[in-house]
Nucleic acid binder design. Structure first.
Lengths: 153, 153
DNA sequence: ATGGACAATGAATAATCTTGCAAATCGCTC
DNA sequence: GAGCGATTTGCAAGATTATTCATTGTCCAT
């Protein structure tokens, strides 16, 4: 498994799926999925992905934080590979799922992009509702978003 | 300075006021304010306060996280009787009203339930927008929610 | 293909955080 | 005030994470 972006996507999935308390543990899980990297690399990955080690009731786990988001306003091309999970839609509505905490910044970036097909957005914690001007426009938007979500946009 | 609670209050103020990247740094700052404790104690304090060490653009800082809050995820059957107020909807959209503050946790529980008819949810303070895949699906969801909303769901 | 700039990685090591344990302190009751 | 259980803390060892340095791999432009 070559790609760093793919590995980080795998990391994100693992992290969100269950509590992971150390980089060693994460390393073992990744190994099971076919990635063989050292703890050093994971340290760098986690930092790059802004994953924090947060104390919980019983132990500690890596997780995304809202604090990490509220820093800068990167463009969509930077946000999407990091947060994108899936898009779906009906008629003029498009629903975009992101990693936890990703909805707010991504929605803001979509607003800034000022795509003509997009009428507006509403963002929750990890879901964005994109209201489009037409069903056709919605499909176009979905394709665009999927593309942006792929590794290295 | 005797009290642990007071110390933790001071810690929170410092943490919120500026980026603090290590427990040693925090220790020094506290010392300047009259608190003299060891790093061990701070480790325990931070854990107790659920303060996470989150990576930022340039370094790392302690901060409160939303992830720390969303630890226990009660199931829908427990949440609905407590928060449900009413459901309504048009075409593929379903609007669920809850008691104040109930929207966020309830929406999360709906997400976790992964109902096939539900495409996604967006929660505000006391209102949830549920986007369904079809109008028929929406009606099914509404019935299901009403049922769950009855006492002892 | 070859050379060079630059990103990615591992191994070793440094920096930082966590924890077991014993001592000190606190809160109560007598 | 003395006694006693529970809480808090420091110390030092243990565990985890970050970083340095060297190496490898990639992507062009020749």
């Amino acid at each position: 498994m070559p790609n760093k972006t793919d590995r980080q996507r795998a990391i994100r999935e693992l992290i969100e799926a269950r509590p992971i308390g150390s980089q060693e543990e994460l390393r073992r899980l990744l190994f099971g999925r076919g990635w063989d990297v050292t703890q050093s690399t994971l340290s760098r990955d986690l930092r790059e992905m802004r994953l924090a080690r947060v104390p919980t009731g019983d132990g500690v786990r890596y997780a995304f934080t809202s604090a990490a988001m509220a820093e800068d306003r990167p463009r969509l091309e930077e946000l999407m590979p990091r947060f994108f999970q899936q898009v779906d839609g009906v008629s003029e509505l498009c629903v975009l799922h992101t990693a936890a905490g990703g909805a707010q910044p991504v929605a803001e970036a979509i607003d800034l992009a000022q795509w003509p097909e997009v009428m507006g957005t509403i963002a929750g914690e990890n879901t964005i509702l994109i209201i489009c001007r037409s069903a056709a426009g919605r499909e176009k938007i979905q394709r665009k978003l999927r593309l942006l979500g792929r590794a290295d946009g």
